[in-house]
Structures are given as C-alpha cells and as structure tokens.
Design a protein around this nucleic acid. Structure first.
Lengths: 148, 148
DNA sequence: AATAATCTAGACTTATTCAGTCCTGATTAT
DNA sequence: ATAATCAGGACTGAATAAGTCTAGATTATT
C-alpha cells in the first residue's frame, strides 16, 4: 500500500513544531527531540535532510540551531516528501529513472501510463500545505464540522 | 519514496493483456504467464487477488480460467492498488487503521492532516483508468504529441 | 586561546516489509 | 475416474527503511 516513509511523518511533525515560535524561531535538535518525544538521533537525521533541501536553515556552533525559512503555508507535502525520500515516483519505471528492475519486456510499455499516475499523485501532494496539516491545539479542541 | 508494490505493476500488465480478447476472453494463469513473461507462481498470486476483489471472474476446474468483468475504462488504478495492497493509505495513522506504530503522542494529532493527503492521493488514483494506462502497440508506434 | 555546544557527513546494524515460491485442498470438464 | 485449474495459506529469502553511532567542522562564550 503506497506508503510514505516514517521519516516524512516525523518531518511534518518537526516542521509543525518549529512553526510555533516558542524559541525565537531557533530550535536545536535537542529542543525538538524533547518537544516531539522522538529520539534525538532520529530528529538529527530528519533535520539534516530538511536543511540540505533548503527548507530550514542551520546555524552551527554554540547557540546554534535550525529555523524555518518559509511560511508553513508555502511548504507543500510534496516538498517534504522529496526532501526525505527523493523524487516522488510511484514506480521504478518512471521518468528520470534507469528502471533497473524492469526486466520484463511486456511491462515496460506501461511506463507512459505510470508517469501519468505519478504526475497525478504529485499534483495532489503539491496541493496540500504544511499549514493545512498542522492542527493547532485550539483547532483540535474546537468541534469539527464532520467526522474525520 | 511513496511507491507501489510490484504486484500492482504486474496486475496492470495482466489486466491489460486480458483485454486483448485473444482467448475468447478466458485466460488461464498459464496463458498469462506465457504472454506476459512473468513467472507462473507470481501470475497465479496476482490473479487470485484480483479475483478476490471481484475485478475478474474465476472459472474453476478443467477448461477454466479467468475473465475480465468490467471494461478497462471502468477500472481505475485505485481499484487495482486496493486489490493488491489493501486500502490506499499513505500513513499508518490513517482512518480505518489501528495505528499500531504510533507511539509518539505529539505526532498523532497529525492524522487529520494525513487523511486529507490520503484522500487527495486516492482521488488522483481514481481518475486514471486502466484503459488510459494500456498502451496498445499501435498507439505506441504512433508519434506522440509531446515528450513523456 | 581554550572550551563546550551544535551542526555535518557518512557508515553501520537491525528490523520490517515485500517478492517470490511451494504445498495442499477444492472444483469441474472430459 | 482423471486431469486440469483455481483457492488458500505458509514459508523463505532478498530488498529496503529505520535507527544508531562515531568522527569531523563550525562558532559562541569564557
């Protein structure tokens, strides 16, 4: 079942926390580990990837930390997934791939079709922002319009 | 990277073959193994799952086989994925799940957000039909409008 | 200048998941 | 009765991801 990596899940949680501005907007890996409850090494890994992709800025040295570079509404789920797991591709046989596992002649002709699917999924993912995913304590406590 | 299982890939290929009507519309697992080049046990596994989900009908006994129940245009990629891998859910923390791996308090509140994503992806997948993915030899040889 | 705190980079180990295979049983045409 | 075919499920091995750890680079503070 088409599933995204747990790292991506963590990334969303962490980025969400960073948006709360509790620390002047500057968070160390240790801060976020404590706040999120995730183990420190894991948090560090996620943060590194996020920084590498330019979504957050890293300040080295003592009194350093990470800070959000864009507004939560300007970060899409697709951005986060790509930062964590690389390009969004549902199949090996996708554009920009060497499709190394594709040794079955009769399947390869499908790739055009799968690219269509890949793009549809990507578009769906681009249209959900981090802001939409971050549920603030206030909104969570409030009554909801409909189930789920 | 959000990826679908290889079984699903096979399923699309197999269903595509079954649409060619070469065998009166009735195909044995052996037939399809030969036609597709996929190993027999694997083909059998895929076919079983497809039959279970009601997408194809199974005829038991000698001179039995499988046949397509719906038109290719009436089968969506979402249908096939669900038949192969179960419900389309990007994360563990999705509706209809026991979210067993979710032991981190601070992440669980995200589930509403992920469900939003799940639905977006599902909708995207529902809008691509098997017919659109099945590239006939003729259309493949024909010049294409634009790249990819 | 020395120290401590913090990020950077990458290797490594372990756990989880998936692909693929096989076996046994049920059904049905000849 | 026999042979062909699907049904169901267990099992093994390989691929992938998660998570951890160690060593190195950078920077504020003393």
């Amino acid at each position: 079942m088409i599933r995204l990596s747990r790292l991506t899940d963590y990334a969303v949680a962490l980025l969400s926390h960073m948006g709360t501005e509790g620390k002047d907007g500057l968070w160390t890996a240790a801060d976020l580990s404590a706040t999120s409850g995730l183990p420190m090494p894991t948090v560090a890994k996620v943060l590194k990837l996020l920084a590498k992709s330019g979504m957050i800025a890293a300040q080295r040295g003592a009194a350093g930390g990470y800070k959000l570079l864009r507004a939560q509404s300007a970060i899409s789920v697709a951005d986060i997934i790509e930062a964590m797991d690389g390009p969004i591709a549902i199949t090996d046989c996708a554009e920009g791939s060497e499709h190394p596992g594709c040794n079955i002649e009769s399947i390869c002709p499908m790739s055009d079709g799968w690219n269509k699917v890949n793009r549809a999924v990507r578009r769906a993912l681009e249209q959900v922002s981090l802001a939409e995913m971050s549920v603030t304590p206030a909104s969570r406590a409030a009554p909801r319009a409909s189930g789920a």
